[in-house]
Nucleic acid binder design. Structure first.
Lengths: 172, 172
DNA sequence: TGTTAATATGTCGTACACGAATGATTATTA
DNA sequence: TAATAATCATTCGTGTACGACATATTAACA
């Protein structure tokens, strides 16, 4: 072990990035626990609620894609949301394999109380940065995502626009 | 609230960054599971082994600080490592509250078989980037860590000296 | 028609990851 | 010395997060 009491050369960039990642992951977790203590809802639960709200109604698979989670993970999250009466599951009449997930009034009320900017305090901080800097950061993250091959990891359906999709008429 | 239904305009930078984060978190998890399948060891376990190796011997609290994890998390990881005979726990004779954790020969052997660059395939990719680009990415991540307040989240022992700026915007 | 494949959801076991509470040990202080 | 505080590791309960597998349903096909 190189003990150097005089100077400590900075760690290599790649190690620093890995280090930052672990800190970010931890910060997200800590924030989620604060949300849980304050609103009795966690970060992932809030993300899922937001996705359902944006779509009006969604299914397990779609939510998993948008949230970058596996379906089994989403099932657990939805179970808890259902238990807290934030969502309703209704079987699709056309394709009975699908379960359409809706928000309850209670969930709508909650989402008004917990503004999106609260999901992560980070959003506020980011928005206060000059546009150029935001872009630099966003590009850096996207490059890392690309370098990790995280794009091909199961979900590229995120684009919210989805101009046309005639192959499968949405139920609503 | 500006609704612009004309073009599929890219998502705001902050949302994109959050999105990237979720993808990165997932990629790290997926990679850990591949390691588990191939070497019967997970990413967090490898991180802890590396920390112990770098120090020759460490304690639960120290490992938790360096790995940006809570002590209770590290205890669980060490339990599994001990069960696999990768570490030994020995009570400190001077301060019997501490448990010194050592690597076994088996762990040394493992760490040779699993080179550090395999921890995350990311490392290889990063190292192939030009130095300047690495730095841009590292700085972007560090800024986000700072914006999230993740530095003050339980472990500031890691940074050695790093004569960076002391101008820390007082957010509290 | 029936058989097989594909899809959607759910169950199960494993491994993090955390805070709160507990017990053991050491340090501090009255 | 005795009471108290601080520290360290551990246990416990909750909530992700995953893949493998099981079940139900639909689609594709012979």
């Amino acid at each position: 072990m190189s003990n150097n009491p005089t100077i400590a050369e900075p760690l290599p960039n790649d190690i620093q990035i890995l280090n930052s990642m672990r800190q970010i992951i931890r910060a997200i977790d800590v924030h989620s626990r604060k949300l849980k203590a304050q609103y009795n809802i966690t970060g992932p639960q809030l993300i899922c609620l937001g996705i359902i709200q944006a779509s009006g109604s969604s299914t397990v698979t779609k939510i998993a894609h948008e949230a970058h989670l596996s379906t089994s993970t989403v099932v657990g999250i939805l179970d808890r949301l259902e238990h807290e009466a934030y969502i309703l599951r209704e079987r699709d009449r056309v394709d009975r394999r699908n379960w359409n997930v809706h928000l309850t009034d209670q969930a709508d009320h909650l989402l008004k109380m917990v503004p999106p900017s609260l999901h992560y305090g980070l959003l506020n901080a980011l928005q206060s940065l000059p546009e150029g800097e935001q872009e630099v950061i966003a590009n850096a993250f996207k490059r890392v995502v690309s370098l990790m091959g995280a794009e091909n990891l199961g979900t590229a359906l995120l684009q919210k626009i989805t101009p046309v999709d005639k192959s499968k008429p949405p139920s609503e």
